[in-house]
Design a protein around this nucleic acid. Structure first.
Lengths: 333, 333
DNA sequence: ATGAAAGCGCTAACAA
DNA sequence: TTGTTAGCGCTTTCAT
């Protein structure tokens, strides 16, 4: 059995309260007393029991992180951003995967409550009224991350996906492209893909062009490759805007398979600036979202809620940026 | 303030003990009493406080996961494997990144102890005597994952990296290649890369061939690309075995840049079977490790330790397998 | 089958 | 500046 605060107190000849004080630096302790306590702690290799502390103080220094799937795309970078900032503020994270299931997400908020997490960072492909209800019931500080809450009821960190898509289309149009297709899967509203698709459509219409949609039943590489290839062999698009880099790479390889040159014959822009973009030939132009920052900013936001620090806005919008690479430029810088 | 077990007890007209019993199914409770309790729980939307429970029972149903970096390579898949199995056994995971720093790893074991985790899954590029000491002091069930413990002191899940490398070399030799180079960074012993390099060297010598080493100061794509390209422009290797897929892809693109055909002029084999392998042209032949299974098996192992279930061996070796794709075969299946 | 009561190891008033 | 004393919300003997 390992030492408790009581053992330390006895060893140092003081009360538990005093030990607690030096431990948490919660009140001034005479220098000499402090030293005695510290010595006792070292001698007994005492380590405070965070669970007991959590019960007594009602703060666990733990936050819950709910993501659809850490192993998907760049999610891990985002989680890394969260964890790094969490560490700066002495928090730990409990990581849970929801697979995007609303039921599971809701259950998870409940179990996170049971675990007495101090706060929650929540990511989801879509937000329902049930989500909002659950959040309210949970009475927990929550920050949404990369999750669209149209009505802005919950603090959130996002980029403006619609605007980003529009920018990408404008970018292609400025390059003289007109017959541009959007590659993406979700038809459902309120998802990330849908936002991007809408931005695409708006920009196209604004320029009097017809939006075209290459639908991929699954938003993965293989499915997208097949979809794009089959559709491209019928309809000779001049450019693709894909809902993410993985699908953009699929489009690139579809062109490759059909002996079309990129960027001479077809230009391609992806989304998210994942490592994939630099690991293809030609490299992929992409709409960059700072994935790491996404997590880092969300966590920083949460610490503000946790400490009742003031903040400017409930909805932080992170900047996006088009990273031009070889898939839209024969002579990239 | 939300309901406690005491509130439920009162509402149901029973004692806390009885509520606890139906909650944990730890003793037989009369059917009718149970119903009353369940009703009270529902009525008050009671949820047990896991922290209090943890303090009282000394088991938190939480395990610590220490990885070098979730956002590196396929680490996230492994973590996903852990989390999925953890969930099956009603555990949650606290995820920490160590950046491979021994000091930080050791500190983390300590803070995980403070958090009273029931067990630990530990991944590290190398294991020192300090690690072992820390593990012993911590008195925690620990499973090493993808981490080499030569002396087999701690339960672990691994693949035989040396054998895997040998197999890959044999594979290339069978294809008629002789001038084969290994691409990798670490010169330090006891690391994953070193294991793979040794297997490579052994197989080469066994066939009377000279081992060649393309050193990349960082084991990332960009650095490797430059290293391979510069060395390849001097020395015309017939094949590369890379310590991971990212470096294999770099080798592929180095060939591309030097106008060498893959696989006709140069064959390439990577390691780990990440998504990258299918997202290149040609696709990459690789030594597959089941990353998800890695985590899943490690966590399952840990649950056995946690429940005092019997198990056969302290060191589980997962199978590896060469996945042949276009980078070693012009006509892959 | 159920209840009473003693902790688990700590924090946080309140005193002194 | 330090000590005393209640809890925090639950599990777990030990009775009954």
């Amino acid at each position: 059995m390992s030492a408790t605060i009581y053992d330390v107190a006895r060893e140092a000849g003081v009360s538990m309260a005093t030990v607690s004080r030096v431990l948490n630096d919660t009140a001034v302790v005479k220098e000499e007393t402090k030293k005695r306590v510290l010595d006792a702690i070292a001698k007994l290799s005492y380590r405070p029991n965070a669970v007991a502390r959590g019960l007594a103080s009602k703060r666990t220094k733990t936050i819950g992180v709910i993501v659809p799937d850490v192993s998907a795309g760049f999610m891990a970078e985002l989680v890394r951003g969260i964890e790094d900032v969490a560490r700066m503020y002495s928090y730990h994270i409990i990581l849970c995967n929801s697979d995007g299931s609303t039921q599971r997400e809701i259950d998870l908020v409940g179990t996170m409550w049971e675990k007495q997490v101090d706060g929650l960072i929540f990511m989801s492909p879509r937000l329902t009224a049930d989500h909002i209800q659950t959040f309210e019931d949970a009475q927990l500080p929550i920050v949404l991350c990369r999750t669209d809450d149209k009505e802005k009821r919950i603090p959130s960190v996002n980029i403006n996906n619609r605007q980003a898509s529009q920018d990408a289309v404008e970018f292609l149009i400025a390059k003289g492209k007109k017959h541009i297709a959007f590659v993406g899967g979700s038809l459902q509203e309120g998802t990330l893909t849908a936002e991007r698709r809408q931005g695409y459509a708006e920009a196209m219409r604004k320029h009097g062009l017809d939006p075209a949609f290459v639908f991929t039943s699954k938003e993965d590489y293989e499915t997208s490759l097949i979809s794009v290839r089959s559709q491209l062999s019928i309809d000779r698009f001049e450019a693709f805007l894909a809902a993410n880099d993985e699908m953009a790479l699929a489009a690139l390889h579809a062109c490759y398979d059909l002996q079309l040159r990129v960027p001479e014959d077809v230009m391609i822009i992806g989304f998210d600036n994942t490592k994939l973009t630099e690991m293809s030939r030609p490299q992929l132009t992409t709409v960059a979202q700072p994935m790491y920052d996404y997590g880092a900013v969300a966590m920083r936001f949460l610490t503000k809620l946790l400490n009742d620090e003031p903040f400017n806005t409930y909805t932080v919008i992170l900047p996006h940026q088009i990273m031009e690479r070889g898939s839209t430029n024969s002579f990239p810088v």
